[in-house]
Computed example of a mutant assay.
Amino acid sequence: MLERSIRGMKVYVVDSDFFVDYDYAIEKQVIEASGNELILETCKNEQDVMDRCKDADVLMTVLVKLNGTVMDACPNLKGLVRYGIGVDAIDIAAASQRGIPVCNFTDYCIPEVATHAFSMILALSRNLPIFTRNVRQGLWTHGPKGIPMRRASSRTLGLVGFGSIARELCGYAKAMGYHVIAYDPFLPAERFAQMEVQQVTKEELFAQADIISVHTPMTPDTFHMINKDTIAQMKDGVIIINTARGPIICEADLIEALKSGKVAAAGLDVVEFETITTSDHPYASMDNVILSPHAAYDSVESTLDLHRKAANTAVTLCSGELPYNTFNKKDLAH
C-alpha cells in the first residue's frame, strides 16, 4: 500500500481516440500535478479494457461500455468517469453494488445543447432546409413551400424533461414569444413556477404542443417514449426535436409519421441506431428532417470545460473523496 501511495494512482482514458487530434494536455497537467499518472488507451470493447487496464484506479470512457465484469477485473478501481452527460455506457447498478462512484457532467454544455435545439426549431419552423434546396436548384419561389409558417406567439413548445438544458431553452423560447409547457415527473411544482412555465402531464404535453423538444435521460422508462401510439396523441403537423438520446424515439414509427405528414418535421441530433454512415438512410432523403451527428454539445468552450472537469473529477476520485458530480451518490449512501 505504501508503494502504491508513493507512485500515485493510475487514471486510464479507455477510448482516448474518440477526441480526434486532441492531446489530453489538460488532463495530463491536472492529473500529473496531483502526483497521479494518466494513461491513454484505444480500447474498442470491454475485453480490451480488461486486458489493458487491470491496474486502473480510475477508468474514464466516452463510448466503450464498462460493466460489472470490467469492474471486477480492476481490483484497485475507485471510480468511473463518463465524458459527457449520459451514462448509458456504464452499468450503474453494478457500480453501485460494488461501491464505485460513477461521475458524469450534466453542467458542461447547457447553452450549447439548448442553442442547438432552438436552432433546429427555428430552422424547421421557417422551412430553411427546403428554401435552401429550392434556391440552390434555381427554383427560387417555385419550389416546395414546406410547412405553414406561424408566428412564435401562436405556437406552444412542449419540453419533455425540464432539467438545466430544457430550462435554458425555455428562456430562449419565451423571449421569442413561444408559450412553453413542460413535463418532468421528478421536479417540484416550484421549479416550473419559477420559470412561469405550465406544468403538464406527458399526455397533456403530447396533445397540446405544436413543437415537442426531448430533454430526458435514456432510461428503461423513456425508451421509445415517442412511438406510434404517443405520436397518434399529438397534433397533426407537430414538429419533434431530439437532442437527448436516440432510442427515446422509435425510429421506424417516426419515419412513418414523417412520411404520412402526421409529424411535419423533425430535428435530430441523435438517432436510435447511431451512427448513420450510408446515404440511403430514410432520413437522408427527407426535406423535412434536419440531422446533425450528435454534435449539440460541441463548442470550443464546452470542450475545454469538459476536459477540465474530467481531469478534476479523476483527481478527486484518486484522493478517495466523492466528487460533486457523482451520478449514483444516493445509491452509494445506502
Rank of each mutant, 00 (worst) to 15 (best):
R7K: 12
R7N: 01
G8C: 12
Y12K: 05
V14C: 02
S16I: 03
F19Y: 07
V20C: 06
D21E: 15
D21M: 09
Y24W: 14
E32Y: 06
C43K: 04
K44V: 09
M50K: 13
C53H: 11
C53L: 03
D55H: 11
V58N: 04
M60P: 06
V62Q: 12
G68L: 03
T69R: 14
T69C: 15
A73C: 02
C74M: 11
L77N: 08
V81Y: 02
Y83T: 08
S96T: 12
R98C: 10
G99S: 13
V102F: 07
C103M: 08
T106N: 08
P111F: 00
E112Q: 15
A114V: 11
A123I: 00
A123F: 02
P129D: 03
P129G: 04
F131W: 11
F131S: 06
R136W: 06
Q137M: 12
L139K: 09
H142P: 01
R155Q: 12
G158R: 06
G161E: 11
F162T: 10
F162Y: 02
G163Q: 04
G163R: 00
I165E: 13
I165D: 13
A166Y: 07
R167Q: 15
R167P: 04
L169V: 06
L169G: 10
C170E: 10
K174F: 02
A175P: 07
M176Y: 10
Y178R: 04
F186E: 13
L187A: 11
E190T: 13
E190M: 06
E190R: 06
R191C: 04
F192T: 08
M195T: 01
M195P: 00
E196N: 13
E196G: 11
E196S: 09
Q199R: 15
E204S: 05
A207F: 03
A207L: 08
Q208K: 10
A209G: 01
D210H: 08
I211Y: 10
P217M: 07
T219S: 13
P220R: 12
P220E: 13
T222Y: 10
H224I: 13
M225L: 15
I226F: 14
N227Y: 03
A232Y: 04
D236P: 11
I241N: 09
R245L: 02
I249F: 00
E251M: 08
D253E: 07
I255M: 01
K259S: 08
K259Q: 14
G261P: 07
V263S: 06
V263D: 08
A264K: 01
A265N: 02
G267Y: 00
G267D: 07
D269I: 00
F273P: 00
T275Y: 14
T277F: 10
S279Y: 09
D280A: 00
H281M: 11
P282Y: 09
N288I: 07
I290F: 12
L291S: 06
Y297G: 10
S299E: 04
T303F: 14
T303Y: 14
L304D: 14
D305Q: 12
H307N: 12
R308D: 03
K309G: 02
A310S: 15
N312V: 02
A314P: 00
A314H: 05
V315D: 07
V315C: 02
G320W: 02
E321G: 05
Y324N: 14
F327V: 14
N328P: 09
L332F: 04
A333F: 10
H334F: 07
H334Y: 09
